[in-house]
Amino acid sequence: MPVEIEPDDFDRLVESALDELPDEIAALVSNVVVQVEADAPAADPDLLGIYDGVALTDRAANHSGMLPDRILVFRRNLVEMCDSLDELRDEVRITVVHEIAHHFGIGEERLHALGLG
């Protein structure tokens, strides 16, 4: 049974996940916007989140002046996979950390090895 949560309360879970990042990691996140979308894209409807941008490890020296990268968190998929608010809070945190890891150039294989995939 999916968790029932208001969109604003879900947004606060995402904000909390960002606030829980260690200061030394948060300070390195550069030019990234985190947004919540109700649904994943039709092309990949099972996604929980996605990093849309150029990883720090792949940026050219002249990357400045570009639009911010985006991390999208897909509310409906996360809510539907969780049976409790505590489980949802954990899954949101894992999803946010997973997508931020992509910002740092960490790939899926390594994330799975770390238990974040």
Rank of each mutant, 00 (worst) to 15 (best):
E37K: 14
S16L: 07
L67Q: 06
R76L: 10
T57K: 15
D69V: 02
V54S: 07
L111E: 04
R75A: 11
I25F: 07
D52W: 02
F10R: 08
V97L: 12
H102S: 09
V54L: 13
E6F: 02
A101F: 12
V79R: 15
D44R: 12
I106N: 03
S84H: 10
R93D: 11
G65I: 01
S64Y: 08
L13W: 09
N31C: 08
G107K: 14
E4W: 00
V3C: 09
D8M: 12
L18H: 08
H112Y: 01
G107C: 12
G115Q: 13
E37F: 14
A43Q: 15
E87Q: 15
H112P: 02
I71K: 04
I50G: 10
E108Q: 13
R110T: 15
V3K: 07
A17K: 02
V3T: 09
E109Y: 11
V3I: 09
H63G: 02
I50H: 00
D58R: 00
L85P: 02
M66I: 03
Y51I: 04
L111N: 03
A55T: 08
V33F: 06
F10H: 10
V73T: 04
I106S: 02
L21Q: 03
A55K: 05
M81D: 04
L21C: 09
R75V: 10
E15L: 03
T57D: 10
R70K: 15
A55H: 06
F74M: 05
